[in-house]
Amino acid sequence: MLLTAAPAAAVASAPPADDSSFVRQAHRRIVFQLDQRFSILNGKIVGINGVKGGVEWRGRWRAGVGVYRLSGGVPTRIAQPEGTPPGTRDEVRFRYLAGYGEYVFIGNPRWELSTPLQLGAGSYYTKYYFPDGGVRRTKSQVLFLLEPSVGAHYRIFRWIGVGAGVGYRQVWAAGKQPEDEMSGIIFFGRVKLFLGDLIKVARGHERLFSQHGLKPEK
């Protein structure tokens, strides 16, 4: 989801209309996005729920912060402590806060290709569910992570688009290294709502499903 603010400054000159290396945004704007990611953890595909917000400069640079958490627990690969009752279920969980930067290196009003990079810190722990209904969790351990990726999106209409991307998450721990596979490939699919453009369409009484503003200028 993308939320736009009012223009801050106009660009002195616009690039040629047929030059797809420019995104042609003449101002700064606030961006906000629900960021649903997927990864492989202990051989299982898991979801990582996130939300992030920041600022975009002239359609080229984006920077901000995001917060993420594993959508559900994943069975661990760690041996259960001695004396654990038979039938005990254990799950690893993690969450983290990340700063991100993103550079759009090619694109136009219809589509773009960018290189997001996230650097964050968080924690992980193991949770035990005992047969008698009891629950216990281990002490949280600090982890650090780096997530480079490549992403793209395509606008179906002026106010909505679809996107996808792929990257890699590298994790380090401040103390004991986790036995679970925290590092791994990440991939995502997105539906992006450009709220600022939707408001402009509504205020201008334009056709909701038109291609206005997306086709190359003649």
Score class of each variant (00 low, 15 high):
V191C: 14
T138K: 10
D180W: 11
S140L: 07
G64W: 01
G120R: 00
K44M: 08
F194L: 15
M1C: 13
F22Q: 06
G204K: 15
G43D: 07
L146H: 01
S39H: 05
F194C: 13
I40N: 11
W172P: 08
T76F: 06
L70H: 10
V150R: 07
P85V: 04
A8W: 15
T4I: 04
Q36G: 03
R190L: 12
V135K: 13
L113Y: 13
L117Y: 01
E179R: 15
A26P: 08
G161V: 07
G122S: 02
R77F: 14
V11H: 02
W172T: 10
G101F: 03
R89M: 09
E112H: 12
K176H: 12
T4H: 08
P131R: 10
G72Y: 09
G72H: 13
V46Y: 03
L143H: 15
I160W: 10
G43P: 11
D18L: 05
F188G: 09
F38D: 01
F105E: 05
A164R: 09
G165C: 07
Q177F: 05
V23A: 05
I106W: 06
Y68I: 03
V171E: 09
E102M: 00
S114N: 15
W57D: 05
D132K: 00
Q80L: 15
W159P: 12
N42V: 11
A8S: 11
V162F: 14
S20N: 11
P75H: 02
A63F: 12
R190I: 06
F130W: 04
R58H: 07
V166Y: 15
E91C: 06
L193W: 15
A79D: 15
P131M: 11
I156R: 06
G59T: 00
S123R: 13
W61F: 08
G189V: 14
G165I: 07
D197I: 12
F209I: 13
K176P: 11
S210Y: 09
G189Q: 11
G64V: 00
L198R: 09
D197V: 12
Q141K: 13
T126V: 11
Q25F: 11
V11F: 02
Y68D: 04
L119Y: 01
